[in-house]
Structure formats: structure tokens, C-alpha cells
Amino acid sequence: MDDYRKPLPVVTELNRPFWDGARREVLQVQCCTECGHLRYPIAEVCPRCLSGGVEWVPLSGVGEVFACVTYHRAYAPEFSDDVPYTVAIVQLDEGPRMLSNVVGPGRLDARVGDRVRVVFDAVTAQTTVPRFRLAQD
């Protein structure tokens, strides 16, 4: 585990709840306490109402592939054992879109519109990365 060489998240006070949630296997995003907008990417203020009030709320972790691409070239040597790997924009059922990977069976055949469910990949003792698998149903 400690030989993980790929980029790790830059954890800040702002995004710490996201990454702490992932370690507990909870996918959570910011919810504006003023207007109720669920936002991602993580941001200081709500882009709809500019309020700074926030609470972190758990999501179902279920959604669909919004767009997906497969890397056949490793743009950094740390990824050379991973190619081909799939990066996707996932449309979560609750509204936000998230960048992630499609992993597991059928990952290279993932298509726009496919249903996906979050899985949690503990890449180091401190860091767990949310990724997505194609839903079985």
C-alpha cells in the first residue's frame, strides 16, 4: 500500500470532509444551508446564491455515465501499469457531476448512460478514492 505512487488528493480544510467521508466509505458533497443546492466541485461559496453556509450530506453513490474515455497512453509513468484505464464524468442521481474512474468488470466497455455505483478504493492507509463500477441490475 505504501508504494502507491500515483497522485494523491491535495487535502485542504475545504475539501477534507469529502476525503474523510471517502475513508468511511461515504460519498458526500456540500449542500448550501441557504438555498439547498448540492454542489460539486467543492467550493467556498454556493455558485447559485453565494452563501458560504454549508453542510456535508451523503449521497446514494448511484448515477450514470455522462461521458467516458479510455486512456491508452500513460501521461505520467505512475500510470503505465494501469493503461488502458477509464475516466468518466458520472452524473449522480442527486444532481452533481463528478470526475472519477469506471473500474471492475466491463470497465472498458462502459458507455454513456450506463448505470454505475460508487466503490471505495483504499489506496493508502490515509487515503480512499471513490470510483465507480457498472451496476449489475
Binding site: 500515483k6 488528493p9 491535495v10 466541485p41 475516466v87 474512474n101 470510483r131
Partner: peptide, 12 residues
């Protein structure tokens, strides 16, 4: 974007 950490998912 630092907050997005997109490289984590290999989006390079």
C-alpha cells in the same frame, strides 16, 4: 484545480 484533484483519477 487544487480542490478537484483530478490527477487522482488519472485525468491528465
Amino acid at each position: 484545480n487544487a480542490e478537484d484533484s483530478w490527477g487522482v483519477w488519472g485525468a491528465l
